[in-house]
Design a protein around this nucleic acid. Structure first.
Length: 276
DNA sequence: CCTAACCCCTGCTTGC
DNA sequence: TGCAAGCAGGGGTTAG
């Protein structure tokens, strides 16, 4: 469940290690994880040969590796995906589905137990086409304001939690940070989006900003699977107020935290601190 | 257009 | 102790 903070931390750990490295060989061990050209392991590997990694960007939960020659390697880790920087002697295990060998002998492993993630190779600007062009605002950018979010909330009849998880509205929030932000803003996950007050909208934006920033600084949350580019855990899970704490006392008021299903996701909240 | 449900997948947890 | 069912969930797709 890498969300924005985890993906951003992966980006930051990998960038200095991969920058200016040339991909000398690519081995695809599970073709379905090559999303573009779809399932074409040979074409994917062939086109990557000799490409130099120039930069790594992030948009929402996507990583965009900028390559020489006008190519772009776009990765989405979904639930259990990892991009791991390995030395020359490392051997891929059964969950390592793509192996990139670099000119300095190091390797980059795409590792994904549940095989939900994947990588796409573009030979033109991927930002102007789906799925990247359809993503909503970056929540840590200056564009994430009440004047952006409030008009959207007013026309949404679904739960506020569904809105936070909708990548077309805000890019990068997943189940962990949706629950944490709603707790910090004092709003229950099942509350209808169009029932929020403008004050609550403002509080929610502030909560999302501060929580995501703190989580990035902590290297993300390692709940089950998430590891950064060097295989290290993050530490923000120790700061979770509600996620994964159903049945335990609220850290603010002591009330037992409740668990409900919202938008098909498990959601934990404090019945006292969060208003419906 | 909008919203909810389903599906993909494997490892871990739960319950009998 | 063993085994099966349930759960975890991002996002594309399908159904209503």
């Amino acid at each position: 469940m890498p969300e924005l903070p985890e993906v951003e931390h992966v980006r930051r750990t990998l960038l200095p290690l991969l920058s200016q490295r040339r991909i000398v060989n690519t081995t695809v061990r599970l073709a379905k994880q090559v999303w573009r050209p779809k399932g074409d392991a040979a074409g994917f590997s062939h086109r990557l040969r000799g490409a130099v990694i120039e930069d790594i960007l992030r948009r929402g939960k996507y990583l965009i590796i900028i390559l020489s020659g006008g190519q772009y390697l776009v990765a989405h880790l979904r639930m259990t995906g990892k991009l791991l920087f390995k030395d020359a002697s490392a051997e891929p295990d059964v969950y390592t589905h793509i192996v990139f060998r670099l000119d300095d002998g190091h390797q980059l492993f795409y590792h994904d137990v549940r095989q939900f993630g994947g990588m796409a190779l573009w030979d033109s600007d991927p930002f102007i086409e789906p799925p990247l062009c359809d993503l909503g605002v970056e929540p840590l950018s200056d564009a994430f304001t009440c004047s952006y979010l409030w008009p959207i909330l007013r026309r949404k009849h679904t739960s506020i939690k569904s809105v936070l998880l909708d990548q077309h509205i805000i890019a990068g929030i997943g189940n962990i940070y949706a629950d944490e932000a709603l707790f910090a803003a004092g709003i229950r996950p099942r509350k209808r989006a169009n029932r929020l007050t403008k004050r609550e909208c403002g509080a929610l934006i502030q909560a999302i900003r501060s929580i995501l920033a703190a989580a990035v600084a902590a290297g993300g949350s390692s709940v089950r699977d998430y590891r950064d580019g060097l295989g290290s855990s993050g530490s923000y899970q120790f700061h979770h107020a509600v996620y994964g704490r159903s049945g335990q006392p609220c850290k603010k008021c002591g009330t037992v935290l409740k668990q409900v299903r919202v938008a098909g996701r498990t959601s934990v909240y404090c019945p006292t601190c969060q208003k419906s």
